[in-house]
Write a protein that binds this DNA or RNA. Structure first.
Lengths: 256, 256
DNA sequence: ATAATAGTGTCTCTCAGACAGTATGTG
DNA sequence: CACATACTGTCTGAGAGACACTATTAT
């Protein structure tokens, strides 16, 4: 007897998605800001299993009718307590080693976010506490401080990838402005670069570079009085997104 | 009666992964090469539902005990028919719009690969045919040619993201060498840039840039005779991975 | 010889690094 | 006043764009 070829509708009706082993997808955030001149990452202390008591990147499962960016935006709103996320975020990369989560096969789509240092609620949604950790403190290996390898899951690797991406992004984009509240001074913007890159930049040359790059910053006309020195010219972010020629990072440590 | 706190082992034993709606993860490849001077992408014609008869990026489901890079490497081996993939590949980004696959919730982790133009078997593993499509042919919107919007799923968006990434990568990395068979001439390397960027480069300045960048190319000492012109010096890829200062792309079309 | 491509040399302009120096406020 | 920070100006050297020119070989 002749078999009629199956239509797409028939194929879909007979398709059984439960035939595959269960897998799940989460969104995890590397959320960076600058507090007291130090580049810092938001971590939460896990209140439940697995990795109970460990510090981890904030994140959660992707809802069944939710896109990835949408899930990231929801996580950001929950973590910062703000409806609209006041900064920049972008997808970082996806992690899917078979045993990275002991519960089941879980793929994590990591996102990278930059935001200014807001005195915001920063309410953790569940019982776990949330706090900003200076990156420099995570790099010490002695003492009883938190270090990279004490993070839950593979979050230390995700954090390191996020830091690499953030450092590279400042070179060829204007995203440094998303680390500061607007309006800001040129020196505040310079301190963003210094905090993220961990270097000292030459004040005069930095100023010339920023002001000569069209679309990077726009003067607001306002001035701000600060101790020790004259009033300071204020700026807001410009329309430009890419920085060309790029800002050059001194002491080239791209060795790894 | 006092409830004892649950241990992680107990938690995992009681964890039911089937409590969540089924989701799945695939790996899709944007595999690029240069054929007859034209940047080209490998596409397969789908032999089964869904999107039967449409052209699509090669890819497949991630095995339950398989990492993401591992799955990409397996796909590359299947598509090229070569055990070891002769080029470069890296993760591009992940796509997870809720309705991007009509069967179920499928997340696609896209990879980007560069390889030289090999007269390799290129055996499609299943019944579908596989072939290289010149990118320029996909950009025409009139006629009955294949165009971007005739690709299956959201593969046109993935392809466009891959092209963007490839074009950017050539600026600040030495990865152009993974598009050519070694040994190669400086002019062959220049034609890689010209094909990927779609521009003409100035021969003398390109040569100076490549040869003055330490670690980009290494002379093999060999020469190659070619019609119309003198013998040509041959090179192989150097150890350097990043290109600093970057190769500058003329006619800045990064507007989008 | 002619055409075509490989390869060298040089001028100019842009821009980053370095540094001197001025202005203006606070202790 | 001393000092710290904001801001301006200038010199220099590296490197990219443009172009002229030579070398070599197939037709």
């Amino acid at each position: 007897m002749a078999e009629r070829e199956q239509t797409e509708a028939e194929y879909l009706a007979s398709y059984n998605p439960r035939a595959f082993p269960p897998q799940s997808v989460t969104v995890d955030m590397v959320l960076l800001t600058i507090r007291d001149g130090a580049l810092s990452v938001l971590l939460i202390e896990r209140g439940g299993h697995p990795f109970k008591g460990y510090w981890a990147l904030p994140g959660g499962f992707v809802g069944s009718d939710e896109g990835l960016d949408e899930a990231a935006r929801r996580e950001l709103a929950e973590e910062t307590g703000l409806e609209e996320f006041p900064g920049h975020f972008e997808q970082l990369r996806t992690y899917g080693a078979p045993a990275r989560d002991p519960r089941m096969r879980v793929f994590s789509v990591a996102y990278l976010g930059f935001m200014p240092n807001l005195p915001a609620p920063m309410a953790a949604d569940d019982a776990a506490q949330a706090r900003w950790w200076p990156i420099a403190d995570l790099e010490v290996t002695d003492g009883d401080e938190l270090t990279y390898d004490q993070l839950a899951f593979d979050h230390s690797a995700i954090l390191l990838d996020g830091l690499d991406r953030a450092r590279a992004k400042l070179e060829y984009s204007t995203l440094a402005t998303s680390f500061v509240k607007s309006p800001f001074t040129i020196s505040e913007l310079r301190r963003v670069y210094e905090a993220v890159w961990g270097v000292k930049l030459h004040d005069a040359n930095f100023r010339r570079k920023v002001l000569s790059t069209e679309g990077f910053v726009v003067p607001t006309g306002g001035r701000k009085s600060i101790g020790r020195g004259p009033g300071v010219q204020l700026y807001r972010p410009g329309e430009g997104k890419i920085l060309f020629p790029p800002m050059l990072r001194p002491a080239w440590d791209e060795s790894e």
